[in-house]
């Protein structure tokens, strides 16, 4: 399955790049993340509990960051499995300052923004894949949105503090 979209974070690209790789922030932003620990350079182990309506599933997996090009792009490789199935994802995240037009027209005091666009492939297997076709697209969008919403609020909190 192809996944793509974009989200605007209320911080400058350098900062966005940094928080997108900050395990402490990621752990708080990822919906259902129970733990995220660094196990090597750019490699993390994580535990997630997905609660979605009646569905509940625990996943254990790994996340790896590759092809780093700060502050413009990096690749994210995720792998997880649990009782209800497994998932693999591989995507490219691109960061760009929000549109020039807006920056130019904005008041000088307006905070900088970064558009994070993502594009990738996700594979789902196991029971989830067999029964969840109808739901995968919508729920993945929802989880990604939740993640960025939370990330944005965390980023703002940090900036304000």
């Amino acid at each position: 399955m192809k996944i793509s979209g974009s989200y605007t974070l209320p911080v400058a690209p350098e900062r966005a790049y940094q928080i997108l790789q900050d395990p402490a922030i990621l752990a708080r932003a990822m919906p259902g993340c129970e733990s995220l620990e660094k196990i090597g350079p750019d490699e993390y182990r994580m535990k997630m509990k997905v609660l979605l309506a009646a569905l509940s599933g625990e996943f254990e997996g790994k996340m790896r960051i590759a092809d780093q090009a700060p502050p413009t792009s990096f690749r994210l490789i995720v792998e997880g499995s649990g009782r209800i199935g497994f998932l693999k994802g591989d995507g490219l995240l691109k960061l760009a300052p929000a549109a020039t037009v807006r920056v130019l027209s904005a008041a000088p005091s307006e905070p900088p923004e970064t558009i994070v666009s993502y594009e990738g492939d996700a594979q789902v297997g196991g029971t989830m894949a067999a029964v969840g076709q109808r739901l995968i697209d919508g729920t993945s969008k929802m989880m990604i949105k939740k993640f960025f919403d939370k990330l944005a609020s965390l980023a703002t909190d940090q900036r304000d503090s």
Binding site: G125, A129, A130, V131
Partner: peptide, 14 residues
């Protein structure tokens, strides 16, 4: 079946 051999019409809902 998807490219990875997962049967994605694996229940009567699909």
């Amino acid at each position: 079946y998807d490219d990875n051999g997962q049967l994605i019409t694996g229940e009567l809902t699909d």
